[in-house]
Design a binder for these strands. Structure first.
Lengths: 183, 183
DNA sequence: GTCTATAATGGGATAGAC
DNA sequence: GTCTATCCCATTATAGAC
């Protein structure tokens, strides 16, 4: 039962990808930290892209759940609030994972365009739902803006000196996102 | 007077950096499009980093102007609106330039950390001003959120099928950013 | 100012022994 | 499962002729 090594590789890669960036992280560096050689990594993951896919899977699943939930909701203010809250929860629960996409979108696109496309598609569908049925251009823009607000949960740490609790982030950013939609 | 070539190089590099990403764009590719060889680029720019610096200068200047303006304003709702509008204008006037930082933050950091740090610092100072004097944590978060909303001006094109006019963007996103601050 | 040629480095990935 | 050794490739950057 040596899924241990596989997991360890994933953990180390996640940390490096999300801080340094995907492209700026070499397999040599990952292997070094895990305590292996580059070649041994290839026993566990067939390529750098495969490693990224494995790491990113939980986030994709998380978005998908929110999307499934949203699809079964009528577009009421209460439901919008609920969906935004769930999106925010996924972001907070997968902070470093989301960080990979924010730190190095270009690198992810270059290495695994399909993964990136999946994320864009899901973001698109969420924004579409948020905008409501037959939305005006303004409503679409506001929906996108609301989602951008939730991204502040991640950039905040770069801008703020003091730590902010997840509870406060949840509360403030949810209200802020609703404000961006003028709800 | 062959600043022509220098300018042409800058133009091509800007386009490639902002679409493919800084790190994903090789000097060979730039040279090819300009109609030169790689070696000739080095006659005009001493390194890839120097090329980036030259490209990025106008954006740095733009932010600085907004910052100077804000510093001389009292923190009233009208002034907040004004400053947000100016930030948005800078973003719209330098769309592809801002795109460089959004597409490949990690690559920029790796190649020119000081440039990145300058941008972060300026963003920080703008957010600090927006948050107002002696702000609560919530107010700081809302200020960051408001700035993120303005970033929607750039991500919008990835999410929307139809073109949106700059005027509509200006109007809607400005109001949306104010909404994020509950103003 | 632009070229050809080449150095120097580092990356992802594979072969094959153990 | 992990290792050593190597391949292959692209990149940034430089040297020197024209």
């Amino acid at each position: 039962m040596d899924g241990d090594t596989r997991d360890k590789i994933r953990e180390v890669a996640l940390e490096l990808f999300s801080t340094r960036g995907f492209d700026q992280t070499s397999l040599r560096e990952i292997a070094e930290r895990v305590g292996l050689t580059k070649a041994s990594l290839y026993y566990h993951y067939s390529s750098k892209q495969a490693l990224l896919s494995a790491i990113v899977a939980p986030l994709v699943d998380g978005w998908q759940e929110v999307l499934d939930f949203a699809s079964n909701q009528p577009h009421t203010p209460a439901a919008v609030r609920d969906v935004l809250a769930r999106i925010l929860d996924v972001m907070l629960d997968n902070r470093s994972l989301v960080g990979i996409f924010m730190r190095d979108p270009a690198g992810v696109v270059a290495a695994a365009e399909s993964i990136w496309q999946d994320m864009i598609d899901m973001g698109n569908q969420l924004a579409t739902w948020l905008a409501g049925p037959a939305p005006t251009t303004a409503e679409q823009l506001r929906a996108i803006a609301a989602m951008e607000v939730l991204g502040a949960a991640l950039s905040a740490s770069a801008y703020l000196k003091e730590e902010v609790s997840d509870e406060e982030m949840r509360e403030v950013l949810l209200d802020s996102a609703l404000g961006a939609m003028r709800l």
